[in-house]
Computed example of a mutant assay.
Amino acid sequence: MLEIRAISIAAIISVLVSGASVAGDVEIVDATAKEGAGGWTFSVTLKHGDTGWDHYADLWEVYTPEGELLGKRVLAHPHVNEQPFTRSLSGVLIPDGITIVVIRARDSVHGVSPQEFRLELP
């Protein structure tokens, strides 16, 4: 009986731990850019196991390859039932000579994801 109880506790702990890891780092699934009269518009698709206000994808940013911040889109709320999701940012000014940008994303628990999405500008 004690052995069965120990196995049950181990199984419960395993389920809890695996559930907690579901909302890990935010993933950048796709990104597009389009040049317009007022600058560039970026549309970025993110995937994250948002669990609510305590853990959600809360930001993405556009950088030059050298690390200069060009623009950022703050995500004001969790997207628990909308995964993956796409949000846009307009009016991003790209310096002359920049043909590739780097997109990074962040969640409210883990911070900035180690993933970098390199996007060649059309």
Rank of each mutant, 00 (worst) to 15 (best):
L70S: 10
E3T: 12
L59K: 02
D50F: 14
I103F: 09
L2D: 13
L59Y: 00
A23H: 08
S14R: 04
A10T: 07
R73S: 03
V26D: 01
L16F: 13
P114F: 03
G49N: 12
P65I: 10
V22W: 12
V102P: 04
H110G: 00
R118K: 09
H48Y: 07
H55T: 09
D58F: 01
G52A: 15
K47H: 04
P95Q: 00
G19C: 14
A57M: 02
G111N: 00
L119P: 05
S18M: 10
K47W: 06
K72R: 09
G39M: 12
Q83F: 02
V29L: 06
E3Q: 12
V109N: 03
I100T: 11
P65W: 08
D54P: 04
H55R: 14
F42T: 08
G36T: 05
A105D: 03
S113V: 03
E3R: 13
T99L: 09
I103R: 08
E116K: 13
I9Q: 07
T32K: 15
G38I: 11
T51K: 15
G19I: 12
D107N: 06
S21R: 07
I7F: 03
H55Q: 12
D50H: 15
G67I: 07
V92S: 15
T99Q: 11
I98S: 07
